[in-house]
Design a protein around this nucleic acid. Structure first.
Lengths: 219, 219, 219, 219
DNA sequence: CATGAATGAGAATTCATTCAT
DNA sequence: CATGAATGAATTCTCATTCAT
């Protein structure tokens, strides 16, 4: 909550926000408060207060609480999808490499946008039905993509899992869960985290030859 | 909602409960509504209505909304723990068997008490801090237990995973997720589900010799 | 506003309302405040305060502001219609007598329920479309009835007006307007008021033989 | 809303106004919206939007909502009074002729400025007390004038009404009501309307010799 | 003339809870 | 066990208005 950006220390008036960037302040505050207390537990008043703004500005930028949540979620999803797409675009054709790229992108996203990840995981159901439907459609592209990667690996004989459905679900579940426990400042670096989860994923799909986590020039 | 009594007279108003089991009716209704809308999204009035009872009956049985949630969660946790303990009590000493028993108990629980599972997964944070602390302490016995099983297997050389922490988290995450997607009436029986998740778990910990899911006299 | 009933003076606690008759108090207060400030100008808070109750009781009795207005209007309309029906039921067959009865009922109603009259005249448009439609349908029975009386008189040759439509509108308009200016305590008694408006109405429809408003000096 | 400019380029956003007549556009929009939803039900934002202008333009021209309403009402009243004065100025000395002129002016006004008429009838009470008082004073010149005409006719023996007060109120009430039901495009022309209401008014005051609506068949 | 950003007061409504019976 | 009536705090949202540009 408190920990704002870097160069924002001394010279500000009672307002924490300078005129003109109200939107960003609100989004940021909403992210935190929605994540902390849940959609219904979060009051729009507190969000505004957290942004250092008056209650009503919120309505200048958004049509309401619901739309605010929606905006947050859409934004997060876009970022997540972009991450995967980029990763896969450079991963080549090998199923194991593709799976690795997918997992890496997902894990990194869960860490990079941990709060948004929690939002997407928990608060989705609070979208109005219509919004929800459209959102889920877009989101489901990701599990589907993962499934295709696994199916491809199985077809080519490099993934030996007898249960591709469960493998897909398991991989996603374990990656998603990261947002719930990972502590950025802790003793597990993101690089290591990624490496371990890629390993886990390859294990889950029973990749053979045994996943040599060699990667000669691992950054 | 669903479980109506047998001898229900036709001319009775929407009372879903026969005199005497008010408590059960309330718990049942609360389960459903809390799960559907979340703690803050659920109104105690709707819970009472869902139970076919008046508001005040609810207050006769429970001190308030918070206590109601707490009761639900405690009940669910007890059940979950009992399931694991029972399963492990008869599993013997073999790490693989113990892991299998743990997973089986967990999966079966997630299916048997799917709604409560969702509650425990999502609504925990709405417990008052004090309650939460006590609850989490008790709940954390389970991951810890799982961790011990894995560590034991690793020590004995039957689990080859280089990342026991991640393995433990992954196994729990994938089991927990079941509550979010499993459809009881669907084409995946609980027996099959359990078998697959046991397989998955053994795969995750890199159990060798290769997990023969033989079980000659599988029930 | 201030002027409550007769025997309600000394012995009451801080609350102006005794437990159990909240509904009546609210309706009474709403009548006054809606009439005084208009639907949108009246705040539900003030209505509650005027009733000596808390804001939320209002919602115990009514679904909301809109429904409150609706209840008021329906009640008023019922009373108005009943008045006319009763009057006409005993008026016999003579068009002049019938017109007299109609006017008398209307005028008396406007005086007896002056506040509700103002509401019906002014706040009708604030009913939601659906409610409005149903209401207007019922209300329009009255102008229609008046029109029939006039047509009948014209047909029988006792009303000489060349413009029955305008006559009907004029009679209604002038009767309705009474609610806007009549002062109960003033020097014009209701009896006189009625007599004058019956005379006016008969004049408007050009009733002949010349309306002998004789009644030597009844009462 | 309706009256768009003539040379309106196609590619322009929903600006209903061409630069320069902002004031008129605002007044027009306010008229419509105040009449439709009432003073308190009308939002100044919608008025601005209806005029195709930004909120602040509105504040450039008017000090606020209240002043906007006031301006509208004053304008309307001026027009109304001017109409009567002009009509009476050329009506000569005969009470019947004067009454006819008065009614004609009033009826024509109610039709010509139907919306403003509704405003004046309904929204007057929303003027701040001080404004209201001054306004009512000016407005009351009209009923007073009508009363004088009637009194004059009675004194001269050409109006036989025994109730000049009621006659005056009735005539005004019926004329005012026109704004509530008249439909400009309908099958009743303004000329006819005026003729009928002049007849009605003369009937109400019991003008004798019997109102010869002679005018053989003028237009 | 015109704008976009912001505010504070107040609107209706909901909700957990209590109390007398 | 059970009810109906009532409350007060909090919630989302709207609105007239202002201000810097």
């Amino acid at each position: 909550m408190g920990t704002r950006g870097t160069a924002e220390a001394a010279d500000r008036p009672p307002k924490a926000v300078t005129r003109g960037n109200g939107l960003a302040a609100i989004m940021q505050s909403a992210r935190g408060i929605f994540a902390e207390r849940g959609y219904h537990g979060a009051s729009i008043r507190d969000i505004a207060k957290g942004a250092g703004l008056s209650l009503s500005v919120l309505y200048y930028y958004h049509a309401g609480k619901q739309e605010l949540l929606h905006a947050l979620l859409e934004d997060a999803l876009d970022d997540c999808r972009r991450g995967c797409e980029t990763a896969l675009a450079t991963a080549g054709d090998d199923p194991a490499a593709r799976l690795g790229a997918f997992v890496q992108a997902t894990v990194e996203y869960r860490v990079r946008r941990q709060v948004d990840s929690l939002l997407a995981l928990r608060e989705l159901r609070n979208l109005e039905p219509e919004r929800l439907e459209r959102f889920v459609e877009r989101r489901d592209a990701l599990p589907k993509l993962l499934h295709e990667i696994i199916d491809d690996g199985v077809a080519r004989g490099v993934f030996a899992t007898p249960h591709p459905d469960e493998a897909q679900r398991a991989i996603l579940a374990m990656c998603n869960a990261i947002a719930q426990w990972y502590q950025p400042g802790g003793d597990l670096s993101v690089t290591d985290l990624v490496e371990r989860y890629v390993h886990l994923a390859l294990t889950v799909v029973q990749h053979s030859p045994p996943p040599r986590r060699s990667r000669p020039k691992s950054r």
